[in-house]
């Protein structure tokens, strides 16, 4: 889902942060902030081998669009790019990239943080952690 100022993609392919950066780069903006979420080996004392992401694609895209529209209006962002992985994601691989541009740094910092915080609350994407000795869906355990 791409328009002039907003680029939202769910992808089974390796994410490249230059694509997000290049999308939001604009001569009207003096600041770009990016968040890159990567896969870590340890979660508390559990050792992870890889993750698997599943999504409800049309709803994930529409929820991300709602978040982006709130971010545009609350923080005065100029451009937003959000790419999220689906499928098998290995250690150190990128799971999510968020890039935003704004006239000044404060709006960029705050807008980017807002988007990742809201993404984690409402966007229908699910992460299964595969461990050395088992697997589970994150946030679903009783």
């Amino acid at each position: 889902m791409v328009d002039k100022n907003l680029d939202i993609q769910l992808s089974a392919e390796t994410l490249e942060i230059s694509k997000n950066y290049n999308f939001v780069l604009d001569e009207k903006c003096g600041g770009i902030d990016m968040f890159v979420g990567t896969v870590r080996r340890w979660n508390k004392d559990e050792e992870i081998t890889h993750l698997d992401f599943e999504c409800y694609e049309p709803m994930a895209l529409s929820e991300l669009k709602k978040i982006a529209n709130r971010a545009f209006s609350q923080f005065g962002l100029h451009k937003i790019s959000v790419h999220h992985r689906t499928g098998h994601v290995g250690l150190k691989d990128i799971a999510v990239v968020i890039a935003v541009s704004a006239k000044h740094r404060k709006a960029a910092f705050e807008g980017c943080e807002f988007i990742i915080d809201e993404l984690k609350k409402t966007v229908p994407i699910w992460k299964k952690e595969f461990l050395i000795d088992g697997s589970h869906w994150v946030n679903s355990r009783p």
Binding site: F53, C55, A60, K120, T122, V123, I125, W126, S140
Partner: peptide
């Protein structure tokens, strides 16, 4: 209609 378990993206 869809069942939405607790989300865990990001």
């Amino acid at each position: 209609i869809a069942i939405i378990p607790p989300v865990s993206g990001g």
